[in-house]
Simulated assay, not measured.
Amino acid sequence: MLDASEPLLKIRNLTKTFGVPGGQVHAVNDVSFDIPRGSITGLVGESGSGKTTLGRTLLRLVEPTSGSTIFDGEDLNALSTRDMRDMRRRMQIIFQDPVSSLNPRLKVGAIIAEGLKAHGIGTAQTRRDTVADLLEEVGLKPEHMNRFPHEFSGGQRQRIGIARALALEPEFIVADESVSALDVSIQAQVLNLLLDLRERRNLTMLFIAHDLSVVEYLCDQIAVMYLGRIAEIGPAKPLYATPSHPYTEALLSAIPMPDPLIERSRTILRGDIPSPLKPPSGCVFRTRCAHAADECAQGEPQSVTVGAGHLSYCKKTKEIYARA
């Protein structure tokens, strides 16, 4: 194990390309950032920005095209299939759709115990005891293990998905839009559960979402993704208070205000997100950016440091957001 001060994950130049009719799609394009131990890192962006592909590529559920993911000192992309299978005990995923991700033919007990059985952990009775404990930990009852997924509400099914992810006692979890399909009141319960589990189990998480108010509540660090690239990354509070990329600013301006009498100044993006088959040259955001200049089309933007651990990938960051 590495020193606790070291990030649990170091993502370096990670790229995932899909071949499609008419060319190639760079779903994840040269992405680099760290995920600190015990933290929750939020990953936000519009639909089609590559968030889910990035999360699954980190776990090698989707094989990367190039780059590296260093997990606790080991490059996951260099591991053999056998070694990666052992590593999967330490990293799990909570899927977005709690309906399609649970096998309708299996009872809840069998679903949660599936990973334990696959890795040869425990006996039938000890696995049953573990499932009962996990169900209680996520706010359900031990007797629920004898029911089928369709007998539960959406929020309860997501709790079952969380229990399944916890069964192997992982250190790292990717939560892929894990509350987006839930009612607001149920969202709050699940978010509080995730925070409680982080503290109790010292979990590290990548929380993928499109609701920025949810991410602000839950996460320590935020990464903003656009068309396969990181646009901005930094600690949650500074990033929300002083966004340093035009795309981040536009996303934050779209968050509804809780007080209807207070009107937020909106930054309206022009046009639609470009096709990933033919991304713009230079900065991929320039075709929708009100501050774009000729230089933005020449070469990809490099990171600009705007604060401690706060980076913006915009050539005009210092000019647009000059601090007094």
Rank of each mutant, 00 (worst) to 15 (best):
L2F: 03
S5F: 08
P7D: 02
L9Q: 15
I11E: 02
L14C: 10
L14Y: 10
G19N: 14
H26Q: 09
D30S: 07
S47N: 08
G48K: 11
L54S: 04
R56G: 01
R56A: 02
L61A: 06
T65G: 04
T65W: 05
S68H: 07
G73M: 10
S80L: 11
D83K: 10
M84P: 10
R89S: 06
P98I: 01
P98G: 03
V99W: 12
P104D: 08
I111T: 10
A113M: 05
G115R: 04
G120Y: 13
E137G: 04
V138G: 06
L140H: 13
K141T: 12
P142D: 04
H144I: 13
M145G: 06
M145H: 08
N146W: 11
H150K: 04
E151C: 01
S153N: 05
G155E: 04
R164P: 12
A167S: 06
E169C: 02
S178C: 07
S185F: 04
Q187F: 07
L197T: 13
R200D: 00
L203H: 00
L206W: 05
L212N: 03
V214H: 01
L218H: 10
D220I: 04
D220K: 02
Y226W: 03
I233V: 08
P238F: 01
S244N: 06
A250R: 12
R264H: 06
R264Q: 11
R266L: 12
R270P: 05
I273V: 15
P279I: 13
S281F: 10
A290M: 08
A290I: 15
A292I: 03
G299E: 11
S312C: 11
C314T: 15
R323N: 14
